[in-house]
Design a protein around this nucleic acid. Structure first.
Lengths: 141, 141
DNA sequence: TGATGGTTATCAGATGGCTGATAGTTAACA
DNA sequence: TGTTAACTATCAGCCATCTGATAACCATCA
């Protein structure tokens, strides 16, 4: 199989194109795709820890920590030591963070809708299913 | 649409899982996915320039340059000034680079075959087509 | 001829991802 | 009780990627 026809390449190219579109959409908010993803999880899980957030975003705790440092510097999230547990640090969106997220997420939702419109409903479901299956297979390798 | 059901996320997760599998497969050769991709193009395009290689790999010339610096340091590629054109630099795999690529690419082909086996032939074709379409739509955004 | 614009290579600096390592905390159990 | 195992946070360093900037070169055409 020539490398240009490998499924690995198809997935890679599609991801590059879609994430790049997401990056362009987020630029006006000063956010990167990774930051927006972390904020989306945070908006659903008040007071989550960094390690849990990393698992939800499917990155390492170290990667998540570096993202959080940047978001904290800008006053988008705040980290407070857990009241009972000595090691844990609870993470929350600040008020400014919630406002920024609401605006940015609406823009991302708009992009996602535009992407989805290039496929009909059946195709969209098929694509999600096939991507899930091939992702699961990859994890077993 | 809740963020967990967005097509952006499905593509991202699948890419992360498959590229991570590729990274694990390449580790024994001391190569990263980006390096292997550049070597694959080089093996097909003897004497290509950095800018052309960047376009083929769909990255910026700067990104490709940093990858080439690393490959050159390890004696995997060589860069020689174009005989006629003053600015251009021709890039080639060295003999060692060709040998390394042959071994590493066989391993990647094996991984790709394993991933492909989780789908039947029709599904594989469908996946490629849908990924191509959604990627093209993303580029228009 | 010479100026303009497009291409190439490459430096610098930021971000996000990884692995490896360290230190502290908690929980479980012999 | 004390030790061990697991988890958490975080530092350091590497790689890949981007944007922005610079310098050199080439081609075209007024």
């Amino acid at each position: 199989m020539h490398y240009s026809e490998r499924i690995l390449g198809y997935v890679k190219r599609a991801e590059q194109a879609t994430q790049s579109a997401k990056e362009r959409a987020l630029r006006e908010f000063g956010l990167t795709p990774a930051q927006q993803t972390a904020m989306a999880i945070l908006s659903d899980h008040e007071g989550i820890t960094g390690a849990q957030l990393a698992r939800e975003c499917d990155v390492t705790p170290q990667t998540m920590n570096s993202t959080l440092v940047r978001l904290e510097r800008r006053g988008i999230v705040e980290r407070t030591p857990h009241p009972m547990h000595g090691t844990l640090v609870e993470i929350r969106l600040t008020r400014a963070g919630r406002n920024l997220f609401a605006a940015a997420d609406a823009r991302v939702a708009e992009l996602d809708a535009a992407l989805s419109k290039s496929l009909d409903d059946v195709e969209l479901g098929t694509l999600k299913e096939l991507l899930t299956r091939i992702g699961a297979t990859a994890k077993d390798q």
